[in-house]
Amino acid sequence: MAEVLVLVDHADGEVKKVTLELLTAARRVGEPSAVVVGEATGDITAKLGEYGAEKVYTAPAELNDYVVAPKAELLATLAADKSAVAVLVSATAENKEIAGRTAVKLGSGVLTDVVDLTADLVAEHSIFGGGVVAHARVTTGVPVVAVRPNAIPAEAAQGAAVQEAVTVELSEGAKAARITDRVKESKGSRPELAEAAIVVSGGRGVGSDDFSVVEGLADSLGAAVGASRAAVDSGWYPNAFQVGQTGKTVAPNLYIALGISGAIQHRAGMQTSKTIVAVNKDPEAPLLEIADFAVVGDLHKVTPQLTEEINKRK
């Protein structure tokens, strides 16, 4: 069976959930080959095997020292050498860029923000903020597909996970944009926003940089915390937590919006959440139109009561 390359997302020695989802999708198409940039620890390799990776290609961590181009060179080279039938990446901002450059190198096409994939590589998209469902395919060359986190449920299936180190001779061009420093904004111990099953977000309605009302509810549910752009721009919550068109796209099982009006740019990043709950004092707020359950009221009264109630029922 033909190989399907899956670019692995990992941090601190752990494989991200979305990679397991990609491996699951890859098995529909062919034999998954995981591509790890940086050290593939025993734990990483084992996990990739549990979700069906037959091969695990490892490339030097040096590729991470430059923006995007080296990983595209790696994927394009591997795709050609191994006659891969498709390349899958997660639909993060950076990986979509990698996907675009890989497709240019392969002379093929790229599909981004895919929510489902068939065995013959027809991809489902949810476009215009969830208003239209479209199916598309790549018409030429090896398809490069960026799949949204939380869209395809991960299912375990044992693969051989045979490791193979790959060396890439980076072109000078690939080293043109050097990363000279990395700055991380604190995250704490909550689940990661893009991958979380439950997300609790706060907006301008929270009213100050005291986000404890949002965080308290999130912790009672084991949820990630998100924020609207208004809250981020006000300096109440770090940028990395923005949900929306220019922030992260999330599609959790449950999305709770506290004091968020639901501007189109916010909805673009959360509209495909399976269940939506909103608390807003304005009955006309657009978010209420797409909420499965909404309370019109003051979030500073409703939320603490909700948090207490959840903690009581646990």
């Binding site: 497709a103 093929s108 096409g109 790229v110 599909l111 027809v122 949810s126 969830g130 208003g131 239209v132 469902v133 479209a134 199916h135 598309a136 395919r137 790549v138 018409t139 030429t140 060359g141 939506i276 009955p283 209420l288 797409i290 909420a291 499965d292 359950f293 909404a294 309370v295 019109v296 009221g297 003051d298 009264k301 409703v302």
Partner: peptide, 21 residues
């Protein structure tokens, strides 16, 4: 390099419940 196979309007979300606190 890509082609749309088909498209359709997504079924609208079922109307939710709105209550006043």
């Amino acid at each position: 390099t890509t082609a749309v196979v088909d498209f359709a309007e997504a079924p609208p979300r079922a109307a939710g419940t709105v209550v006043k606190d």
